[in-house]
Design a protein around this nucleic acid. Sequence first.
RNA 1: GUGGCUGUAGCUCAGUUGGUCAGAGCAUCGGUUUGUGGUACCGAGGGUCGGGGGUUCAAGUCCCCUCAGCCACCCCA
Length: 414
Amino acid sequence: MSSLQPVRGTHDLLPADMRRHRKVRDTARAVAERYGYLEMATPIFEFTEVFKRTLGEASDVVTKEMYTFSMKEGEEITLRPENTASVVRAFLSGGLAQQLPLKFFYDGPMFRHERPQKGRQRQFHQIGVELLGVPHPAGDVEIIVAGAHILDELGFLDDVVLEINTLGDPASRQAYREALVGYFRDHRDRLSEDSKDRLERNPLRILDSKDRGDRELVADAPAFDDYLNSESQDFFAAVLAGLDRLGLNYKLNSRLVRGLDYYSHTAFEFITERLGAQGTVMGGGRYDGLVKLMGGPPTPGVGWAAGIERLAMLLEAEPPAPRPIAIVPIGQAAEEKAQTLARDLRRAGYGVDLGFSGNMKKRLQRANKLGAAAAILLGDDELAEAKATVRDLESGQQETVSLTALTDCLARFR
RNA sequence: GUGGCUGUAGCUCAGUUGGUCAGAGCAUCGGUUUGUGGUACCGAGGGUCGGGGGUUCAAGUCCCCUCAGCCACCCCA
Protein backbone atom coordinates (compact mmCIF):
# COMPACT_ATOMS: atom_id res chain seq x y z
CA MET A 1 0.00 0.00 0.00
CA SER A 2 1.23 3.41 -0.85
CA SER A 3 1.49 5.91 1.96
CA LEU A 4 0.25 8.46 -0.55
CA GLN A 5 -3.14 6.82 -0.61
CA PRO A 6 -5.66 8.20 1.81
CA VAL A 7 -6.42 5.87 4.69
CA ARG A 8 -8.98 3.28 3.67
CA GLY A 9 -12.49 4.52 3.93
CA THR A 10 -11.52 8.19 4.00
CA HIS A 11 -11.93 10.70 1.23
CA ASP A 12 -10.76 14.16 0.39
CA LEU A 13 -13.48 16.68 -0.20
CA LEU A 14 -12.29 18.67 -3.18
CA PRO A 15 -14.16 21.89 -3.92
CA ALA A 16 -16.88 20.29 -6.06
CA ASP A 17 -17.59 17.65 -3.36
CA MET A 18 -17.40 20.30 -0.69
CA ARG A 19 -20.07 22.34 -2.43
CA ARG A 20 -22.44 19.39 -2.35
CA HIS A 21 -21.73 18.79 1.31
CA ARG A 22 -22.20 22.42 2.08
CA LYS A 23 -25.48 22.51 0.25
CA VAL A 24 -26.73 19.70 2.47
CA ARG A 25 -25.40 21.20 5.67
CA ASP A 26 -26.50 24.74 4.98
CA THR A 27 -29.97 23.69 3.90
CA ALA A 28 -30.38 21.45 6.92
CA ARG A 29 -29.16 24.04 9.37
CA ALA A 30 -31.35 26.76 7.91
CA VAL A 31 -34.46 24.59 8.07
CA ALA A 32 -33.63 23.28 11.54
CA GLU A 33 -33.30 26.85 12.79
CA ARG A 34 -36.82 27.58 11.60
CA TYR A 35 -37.96 24.92 14.06
CA GLY A 36 -35.81 26.39 16.78
CA TYR A 37 -33.03 23.82 16.66
CA LEU A 38 -29.81 25.69 17.35
CA GLU A 39 -26.44 24.58 16.10
CA MET A 40 -23.98 23.23 18.61
CA ALA A 41 -20.88 21.08 18.43
CA THR A 42 -19.19 18.56 20.65
CA PRO A 43 -15.58 17.39 20.41
CA ILE A 44 -14.95 14.67 17.85
CA PHE A 45 -13.54 12.46 20.59
CA GLU A 46 -14.78 11.54 24.03
CA PHE A 47 -13.77 9.20 26.78
CA THR A 48 -14.42 5.72 25.46
CA GLU A 49 -16.78 5.17 28.35
CA VAL A 50 -19.26 7.65 26.91
CA PHE A 51 -19.92 5.39 23.94
CA LYS A 52 -19.45 2.06 25.68
CA ARG A 53 -22.06 2.85 28.28
CA THR A 54 -24.64 4.16 25.89
CA LEU A 55 -24.24 1.96 22.83
CA GLY A 56 -23.84 -1.16 24.93
CA GLU A 57 -20.77 -3.35 25.42
CA ALA A 58 -22.15 -5.96 23.07
CA SER A 59 -23.14 -3.69 20.22
CA ASP A 60 -21.37 -4.00 16.88
CA VAL A 61 -20.22 -0.43 17.02
CA VAL A 62 -18.52 -0.86 20.36
CA THR A 63 -17.12 -4.33 19.80
CA LYS A 64 -15.51 -3.78 16.43
CA GLU A 65 -16.07 -0.42 14.87
CA MET A 66 -14.66 2.18 17.22
CA TYR A 67 -11.40 4.04 16.76
CA THR A 68 -10.08 3.93 20.30
CA PHE A 69 -6.75 5.23 21.53
CA SER A 70 -4.91 4.83 24.79
CA MET A 71 -3.32 8.02 25.99
CA LYS A 72 -0.13 8.24 28.00
CA GLU A 73 -2.05 9.13 31.13
CA GLY A 74 -3.93 5.86 30.80
CA GLU A 75 -7.05 7.50 29.47
CA GLU A 76 -9.01 5.77 26.75
CA ILE A 77 -10.51 8.03 24.16
CA THR A 78 -12.62 7.22 21.11
CA LEU A 79 -13.38 9.03 17.91
CA ARG A 80 -17.12 9.48 18.01
CA PRO A 81 -19.05 6.85 16.02
CA GLU A 82 -22.24 8.87 16.40
CA ASN A 83 -23.23 12.09 18.08
CA THR A 84 -26.22 11.51 20.32
CA ALA A 85 -24.16 10.19 23.22
CA SER A 86 -21.88 13.23 22.99
CA VAL A 87 -24.80 15.64 22.94
CA VAL A 88 -26.27 14.04 26.03
CA ARG A 89 -22.87 14.13 27.69
CA ALA A 90 -22.63 17.85 26.88
CA PHE A 91 -26.13 18.32 28.25
CA LEU A 92 -25.02 16.77 31.53
CA SER A 93 -21.58 18.40 31.67
CA GLY A 94 -23.12 21.77 31.05
CA GLY A 95 -25.80 21.39 33.68
CA LEU A 96 -28.48 22.16 31.13
CA ALA A 97 -31.21 20.16 32.83
CA GLN A 98 -32.69 23.39 34.17
CA GLN A 99 -33.33 24.75 30.70
CA LEU A 100 -35.54 22.09 29.18
CA PRO A 101 -36.79 21.68 26.60
CA LEU A 102 -33.66 21.97 24.47
CA LYS A 103 -33.35 21.76 20.72
CA PHE A 104 -29.99 21.11 19.08
CA PHE A 105 -28.71 20.82 15.55
CA TYR A 106 -25.23 19.50 14.76
CA ASP A 107 -23.10 18.51 11.84
CA GLY A 108 -19.68 16.96 11.68
CA PRO A 109 -17.50 13.90 11.05
CA MET A 110 -18.13 10.50 12.62
CA PHE A 111 -15.81 7.49 12.58
CA ARG A 112 -16.62 3.82 12.23
CA HIS A 113 -14.22 1.06 11.29
CA GLU A 114 -16.51 -0.75 8.87
CA ARG A 115 -15.87 -2.26 5.48
CA PRO A 116 -16.17 0.63 3.04
CA GLN A 117 -18.87 0.60 0.43
CA LYS A 118 -20.73 3.21 -1.51
CA GLY A 119 -22.47 5.44 0.99
CA ARG A 120 -20.44 3.99 3.80
CA GLN A 121 -17.05 5.32 4.75
CA ARG A 122 -14.88 5.12 7.83
CA GLN A 123 -14.88 8.84 8.24
CA PHE A 124 -18.28 10.11 7.23
CA HIS A 125 -20.37 13.11 8.09
CA GLN A 126 -23.71 13.51 9.72
CA ILE A 127 -26.19 16.18 10.41
CA GLY A 128 -28.64 15.61 13.20
CA VAL A 129 -31.13 17.08 15.61
CA GLU A 130 -31.92 16.28 19.21
CA LEU A 131 -34.93 17.33 21.24
CA LEU A 132 -34.47 16.91 24.98
CA GLY A 133 -37.07 17.15 27.69
CA VAL A 134 -40.24 16.59 25.69
CA PRO A 135 -42.19 13.46 26.60
CA HIS A 136 -45.11 14.19 24.26
CA PRO A 137 -45.72 12.54 20.92
CA ALA A 138 -45.79 16.04 19.45
CA GLY A 139 -42.03 16.06 19.95
CA ASP A 140 -41.62 12.96 17.79
CA VAL A 141 -43.84 14.53 15.19
CA GLU A 142 -41.89 17.76 15.10
CA ILE A 143 -38.59 15.95 14.77
CA ILE A 144 -39.83 13.81 11.90
CA VAL A 145 -41.54 16.66 10.12
CA ALA A 146 -38.43 18.81 10.37
CA GLY A 147 -36.43 15.98 8.85
CA ALA A 148 -38.89 15.60 6.00
CA HIS A 149 -38.82 19.34 5.50
CA ILE A 150 -35.05 19.26 5.03
CA LEU A 151 -35.28 16.40 2.55
CA ASP A 152 -37.96 18.34 0.72
CA GLU A 153 -35.89 21.50 0.60
CA LEU A 154 -33.00 19.47 -0.78
CA GLY A 155 -35.30 18.31 -3.53
CA PHE A 156 -35.74 14.60 -2.97
CA LEU A 157 -38.55 13.98 -0.53
CA ASP A 158 -40.26 12.14 -3.38
CA ASP A 159 -37.38 9.69 -3.70
CA VAL A 160 -37.65 8.64 -0.12
CA VAL A 161 -40.17 6.77 2.01
CA LEU A 162 -40.64 7.27 5.70
CA GLU A 163 -40.84 3.96 7.51
CA ILE A 164 -41.97 4.05 11.08
CA ASN A 165 -42.53 1.69 13.96
CA THR A 166 -42.91 1.70 17.70
CA LEU A 167 -40.73 -0.11 20.18
CA GLY A 168 -43.17 0.58 22.99
CA ASP A 169 -42.27 1.62 26.47
CA PRO A 170 -39.69 -0.35 28.46
CA ALA A 171 -42.28 -2.61 30.02
CA SER A 172 -43.82 -3.56 26.69
CA ARG A 173 -40.44 -3.95 25.12
CA GLN A 174 -39.19 -6.21 27.86
CA ALA A 175 -42.25 -8.44 27.71
CA TYR A 176 -42.04 -8.73 23.94
CA ARG A 177 -38.35 -9.33 24.00
CA GLU A 178 -38.76 -12.23 26.38
CA ALA A 179 -41.51 -13.75 24.28
CA LEU A 180 -39.38 -13.38 21.19
CA VAL A 181 -36.28 -14.89 22.72
CA GLY A 182 -38.35 -17.78 23.99
CA TYR A 183 -39.81 -18.41 20.56
CA PHE A 184 -36.51 -18.26 18.73
CA ARG A 185 -34.77 -20.39 21.34
CA ASP A 186 -37.27 -23.13 20.58
CA HIS A 187 -36.31 -22.93 16.92
CA ARG A 188 -32.67 -22.09 17.40
CA ASP A 189 -31.42 -24.79 15.04
CA ARG A 190 -33.38 -23.27 12.18
CA LEU A 191 -31.90 -19.81 12.62
CA SER A 192 -29.13 -18.52 10.38
CA GLU A 193 -25.68 -18.17 11.91
CA ASP A 194 -26.06 -14.40 12.01
CA SER A 195 -29.34 -14.68 13.82
CA LYS A 196 -28.06 -17.17 16.37
CA ASP A 197 -25.61 -14.49 17.24
CA ARG A 198 -28.34 -11.86 17.28
CA LEU A 199 -30.41 -13.99 19.58
CA GLU A 200 -27.87 -13.38 22.35
CA ARG A 201 -27.02 -9.79 21.61
CA ASN A 202 -29.92 -8.15 19.88
CA PRO A 203 -32.89 -10.47 19.37
CA LEU A 204 -35.19 -7.80 17.92
CA ARG A 205 -32.91 -7.53 14.92
CA ILE A 206 -33.81 -11.04 13.87
CA LEU A 207 -37.13 -9.60 12.78
CA ASP A 208 -35.31 -7.63 10.09
CA SER A 209 -33.11 -10.48 8.85
CA LYS A 210 -32.78 -10.95 5.11
CA ASP A 211 -32.17 -14.66 5.41
CA ARG A 212 -34.95 -16.79 3.83
CA GLY A 213 -35.11 -19.29 6.65
CA ASP A 214 -35.16 -16.55 9.26
CA ARG A 215 -38.01 -14.86 7.48
CA GLU A 216 -40.09 -18.01 7.55
CA LEU A 217 -39.54 -18.26 11.28
CA VAL A 218 -40.27 -14.59 11.76
CA ALA A 219 -43.58 -14.97 9.98
CA ASP A 220 -44.86 -17.11 12.83
CA ALA A 221 -43.08 -15.24 15.61
CA PRO A 222 -45.03 -13.42 18.33
CA ALA A 223 -46.30 -10.06 17.13
CA PHE A 224 -45.32 -6.91 18.93
CA ASP A 225 -48.89 -5.63 18.86
CA ASP A 226 -49.90 -8.28 21.35
CA TYR A 227 -47.37 -7.03 23.86
CA LEU A 228 -47.85 -3.29 23.49
CA ASN A 229 -49.63 -1.92 26.52
CA SER A 230 -52.33 0.67 26.02
CA GLU A 231 -50.08 3.61 26.93
CA SER A 232 -47.64 2.60 24.24
CA GLN A 233 -50.41 2.09 21.73
CA ASP A 234 -51.86 5.49 22.50
CA PHE A 235 -48.49 7.12 22.18
CA PHE A 236 -47.84 5.62 18.78
CA ALA A 237 -51.35 6.44 17.60
CA ALA A 238 -50.78 10.05 18.62
CA VAL A 239 -47.54 10.23 16.65
CA LEU A 240 -49.21 8.83 13.55
CA ALA A 241 -52.17 11.15 13.97
CA GLY A 242 -49.76 14.08 14.12
CA LEU A 243 -48.07 13.00 10.92
CA ASP A 244 -51.46 12.57 9.27
CA ARG A 245 -52.51 16.02 10.38
CA LEU A 246 -49.43 17.55 8.79
CA GLY A 247 -49.84 15.56 5.62
CA LEU A 248 -46.68 13.50 5.88
CA ASN A 249 -46.93 10.04 4.32
CA TYR A 250 -45.40 7.05 6.03
CA LYS A 251 -45.26 3.31 5.84
CA LEU A 252 -45.66 1.17 8.93
CA ASN A 253 -42.85 -1.33 9.25
CA SER A 254 -43.07 -3.62 12.23
CA ARG A 255 -39.62 -5.04 11.45
CA LEU A 256 -37.92 -1.70 11.87
CA VAL A 257 -36.13 -1.94 15.21
CA ARG A 258 -33.39 -0.43 17.28
CA GLY A 259 -31.34 -2.77 19.38
CA LEU A 260 -30.29 -0.60 22.26
CA ASP A 261 -32.14 -0.59 25.52
CA TYR A 262 -32.50 3.12 25.94
CA TYR A 263 -34.69 3.40 22.86
CA SER A 264 -38.42 3.43 23.29
CA HIS A 265 -41.55 4.23 21.36
CA THR A 266 -40.92 5.79 17.98
CA ALA A 267 -38.32 4.47 15.54
CA PHE A 268 -38.19 5.71 11.98
CA GLU A 269 -36.03 5.82 8.87
CA PHE A 270 -36.21 7.70 5.62
CA ILE A 271 -35.16 5.21 2.97
CA THR A 272 -34.31 5.61 -0.71
CA GLU A 273 -33.95 3.02 -3.44
CA ARG A 274 -31.42 5.13 -5.28
CA LEU A 275 -28.39 4.20 -3.18
CA GLY A 276 -28.42 0.40 -3.19
CA ALA A 277 -28.06 -1.40 0.10
CA GLN A 278 -27.12 1.72 2.01
CA GLY A 279 -30.56 3.16 1.52
CA THR A 280 -31.19 4.71 4.90
CA VAL A 281 -30.66 8.37 4.48
CA MET A 282 -31.97 9.61 7.80
CA GLY A 283 -32.83 7.58 10.87
CA GLY A 284 -33.79 8.17 14.43
CA GLY A 285 -36.22 7.68 17.23
CA ARG A 286 -37.07 8.29 20.83
CA TYR A 287 -34.46 7.57 23.51
CA ASP A 288 -36.18 8.28 26.81
CA GLY A 289 -33.79 6.07 28.74
CA LEU A 290 -30.50 7.54 27.58
CA VAL A 291 -29.98 10.52 29.84
CA LYS A 292 -30.66 8.46 32.93
CA LEU A 293 -28.43 5.70 31.65
CA MET A 294 -25.60 8.22 31.50
CA GLY A 295 -26.17 9.20 35.08
CA GLY A 296 -28.42 12.21 34.63
CA PRO A 297 -31.94 12.92 35.77
CA PRO A 298 -34.60 11.00 33.84
CA THR A 299 -35.05 13.12 30.73
CA PRO A 300 -36.87 12.13 27.57
CA GLY A 301 -35.27 12.68 24.17
CA VAL A 302 -35.98 12.26 20.46
CA GLY A 303 -33.72 12.83 17.50
CA TRP A 304 -32.38 11.70 14.19
CA ALA A 305 -29.13 11.67 12.27
CA ALA A 306 -28.61 11.77 8.52
CA GLY A 307 -25.56 10.90 6.43
CA ILE A 308 -24.27 13.87 4.52
CA GLU A 309 -22.46 11.75 1.92
CA ARG A 310 -25.65 9.84 1.18
CA LEU A 311 -27.71 12.99 0.94
CA ALA A 312 -25.06 14.63 -1.23
CA MET A 313 -25.24 11.70 -3.64
CA LEU A 314 -28.97 12.27 -4.05
CA LEU A 315 -28.50 15.91 -4.97
CA GLU A 316 -29.49 16.29 -8.61
CA ALA A 317 -27.93 19.60 -9.54
CA GLU A 318 -24.25 20.28 -9.13
CA PRO A 319 -24.04 23.31 -6.85
CA PRO A 320 -22.28 25.95 -8.95
CA ALA A 321 -18.89 27.39 -8.09
CA PRO A 322 -18.83 31.11 -7.41
CA ARG A 323 -18.29 33.15 -10.57
CA PRO A 324 -15.57 35.73 -10.12
CA ILE A 325 -14.78 38.83 -12.10
CA ALA A 326 -11.38 38.54 -13.69
CA ILE A 327 -8.98 41.43 -13.88
CA VAL A 328 -6.75 41.22 -16.91
CA PRO A 329 -3.83 43.67 -16.76
CA ILE A 330 -1.80 44.28 -19.90
CA GLY A 331 1.69 45.50 -19.11
CA GLN A 332 3.70 46.28 -15.99
CA ALA A 333 1.94 49.51 -14.99
CA ALA A 334 -1.43 47.86 -15.37
CA GLU A 335 -0.37 44.93 -13.26
CA GLU A 336 0.31 47.21 -10.33
CA LYS A 337 -2.90 49.10 -10.84
CA ALA A 338 -4.73 45.77 -11.01
CA GLN A 339 -3.67 44.92 -7.47
CA THR A 340 -5.26 47.99 -5.94
CA LEU A 341 -8.29 47.58 -8.15
CA ALA A 342 -8.69 43.97 -7.01
CA ARG A 343 -8.46 45.07 -3.41
CA ASP A 344 -11.11 47.74 -3.90
CA LEU A 345 -13.53 45.46 -5.72
CA ARG A 346 -13.12 42.70 -3.15
CA ARG A 347 -13.83 45.18 -0.40
CA ALA A 348 -16.90 46.22 -2.34
CA GLY A 349 -18.05 42.61 -2.18
CA TYR A 350 -17.04 41.20 -5.55
CA GLY A 351 -15.28 37.92 -6.06
CA VAL A 352 -12.19 38.86 -8.03
CA ASP A 353 -9.66 36.71 -9.80
CA LEU A 354 -6.30 38.27 -10.51
CA GLY A 355 -3.80 35.90 -12.03
CA PHE A 356 -0.14 36.01 -11.06
CA SER A 357 1.33 35.73 -14.52
CA GLY A 358 0.56 35.35 -18.20
CA ASN A 359 -0.24 37.55 -21.13
CA MET A 360 -3.67 38.78 -22.00
CA LYS A 361 -4.64 35.67 -23.88
CA LYS A 362 -3.53 33.38 -21.08
CA ARG A 363 -5.40 35.38 -18.54
CA LEU A 364 -8.57 35.40 -20.57
CA GLN A 365 -8.33 31.66 -20.98
CA ARG A 366 -7.98 31.30 -17.27
CA ALA A 367 -10.91 33.63 -16.68
CA ASN A 368 -12.98 31.49 -18.97
CA LYS A 369 -11.96 28.29 -17.24
CA LEU A 370 -12.91 29.74 -13.89
CA GLY A 371 -16.31 30.61 -15.24
CA ALA A 372 -15.75 34.31 -14.71
CA ALA A 373 -18.78 36.39 -15.50
CA ALA A 374 -16.79 39.32 -16.77
CA ALA A 375 -13.25 40.45 -17.39
CA ILE A 376 -11.84 43.87 -16.70
CA LEU A 377 -9.23 44.70 -19.31
CA LEU A 378 -6.62 47.14 -18.07
CA GLY A 379 -4.03 48.33 -20.58
CA ASP A 380 -2.02 51.39 -21.35
CA ASP A 381 -4.82 52.80 -23.47
CA GLU A 382 -7.28 52.56 -20.63
CA LEU A 383 -4.88 53.61 -17.90
CA ALA A 384 -3.97 56.79 -19.75
CA GLU A 385 -7.58 57.89 -19.44
CA ALA A 386 -8.24 56.33 -16.02
CA LYS A 387 -10.62 53.88 -17.64
CA ALA A 388 -11.08 50.15 -17.94
CA THR A 389 -12.72 47.90 -20.49
CA VAL A 390 -15.40 45.63 -19.08
CA ARG A 391 -16.00 42.54 -21.16
CA ASP A 392 -19.05 40.38 -20.64
CA LEU A 393 -17.59 36.91 -21.03
CA GLU A 394 -20.92 35.38 -21.87
CA SER A 395 -22.00 37.68 -24.68
CA GLY A 396 -18.56 38.88 -25.68
CA GLN A 397 -19.72 42.47 -25.61
CA GLN A 398 -17.50 45.05 -24.01
CA GLU A 399 -17.48 48.69 -23.16
CA THR A 400 -14.95 51.11 -21.78
CA VAL A 401 -15.88 52.99 -18.63
CA SER A 402 -14.08 55.31 -16.27
CA LEU A 403 -12.62 53.66 -13.17
CA THR A 404 -14.88 55.69 -10.93
CA ALA A 405 -17.95 54.25 -12.62
CA LEU A 406 -16.57 50.71 -12.56
CA THR A 407 -18.39 49.44 -9.49
CA ASP A 408 -21.75 50.48 -10.89
CA CYS A 409 -20.97 48.97 -14.24
CA LEU A 410 -20.15 45.64 -12.59
CA ALA A 411 -23.32 45.51 -10.56
CA ARG A 412 -25.09 43.33 -13.10
CA PHE A 413 -22.42 40.62 -12.73
CA ARG A 414 -22.98 40.22 -9.02
C1' G B 1 -15.33 -9.46 9.73
C1' U B 2 -17.48 -12.96 5.27
C1' G B 3 -18.39 -13.80 -0.06
C1' G B 4 -18.12 -11.98 -5.22
C1' C B 5 -16.42 -8.45 -9.17
C1' U B 6 -12.77 -4.91 -10.66
C1' G B 7 -7.79 -2.10 -10.89
C1' U B 8 -4.12 0.18 -18.23
C1' A B 9 -2.08 8.08 -19.06
C1' G B 10 -5.26 13.56 -14.73
C1' C B 11 -10.52 11.39 -16.37
C1' U B 12 -13.53 7.60 -19.30
C1' C B 13 -11.91 3.38 -21.57
C1' A B 14 -9.71 -0.08 -25.91
C1' G B 15 -5.87 -3.69 -25.80
C1' U B 16 -8.16 -10.32 -29.55
C1' U B 17 -5.72 -17.56 -27.88
C1' G B 18 0.98 -14.51 -23.55
C1' G B 19 5.04 -12.46 -28.87
C1' U B 20 5.67 -3.93 -32.29
C1' C B 21 -0.07 -3.71 -27.09
C1' A B 22 1.67 0.55 -24.58
C1' G B 23 -3.28 3.05 -27.58
C1' A B 24 -8.02 6.40 -28.26
C1' G B 25 -11.23 10.33 -26.71
C1' C B 26 -11.48 14.15 -23.19
C1' A B 27 -8.21 17.10 -20.18
C1' U B 28 -3.18 19.54 -19.99
C1' C B 29 0.74 22.34 -22.55
C1' G B 30 2.45 24.91 -27.13
C1' G B 31 1.22 27.06 -31.97
C1' U B 32 -2.16 29.27 -35.95
C1' U B 33 -3.50 34.99 -33.35
C1' U B 34 2.83 39.95 -29.34
C1' G B 35 -4.73 43.99 -26.81
C1' U B 36 -9.28 39.70 -26.70
C1' G B 37 -11.44 33.80 -23.85
C1' G B 38 -15.14 30.07 -25.01
C1' U B 39 -15.29 27.34 -31.50
C1' A B 40 -11.83 25.29 -35.28
C1' C B 41 -7.13 23.42 -37.14
C1' C B 42 -1.89 21.78 -36.20
C1' G B 43 1.60 19.86 -32.74
C1' A B 44 3.69 18.16 -27.93
C1' G B 45 4.23 16.16 -23.10
C1' G B 46 2.28 12.36 -19.98
C1' G B 47 1.75 5.45 -18.10
C1' U B 48 7.36 1.05 -13.31
C1' C B 49 -0.32 -1.43 -17.33
C1' G B 50 -2.44 -0.65 -8.37
C1' G B 51 2.06 -2.93 -5.61
C1' G B 52 5.20 -7.39 -4.74
C1' G B 53 6.60 -12.28 -6.05
C1' G B 54 6.31 -16.47 -9.51
C1' U B 55 5.69 -19.40 -14.36
C1' U B 56 7.84 -18.58 -19.39
C1' C B 57 12.65 -17.58 -24.43
C1' A B 58 8.71 -13.77 -23.79
C1' A B 59 3.30 -11.21 -19.16
C1' G B 60 -0.97 -5.54 -19.27
C1' U B 61 -2.41 -10.59 -20.80
C1' C B 62 -1.37 -16.94 -16.70
C1' C B 63 -0.59 -18.19 -11.04
C1' C B 64 0.09 -16.55 -5.77
C1' C B 65 0.22 -12.67 -2.13
C1' U B 66 -1.01 -7.71 -1.01
C1' C B 67 -3.41 -2.80 -1.37
C1' A B 68 -7.63 -0.15 -3.01
C1' G B 69 -12.55 0.52 -5.18
C1' C B 70 -17.32 -1.52 -6.17
C1' C B 71 -21.56 -5.16 -5.08
C1' A B 72 -23.93 -8.13 -1.37
C1' C B 73 -23.95 -9.93 3.79
C1' C B 74 -23.27 -7.75 8.60
C1' C B 75 -24.33 -2.97 10.65
C1' C B 76 -26.13 1.51 10.08
C1' A B 77 -26.41 7.56 8.34
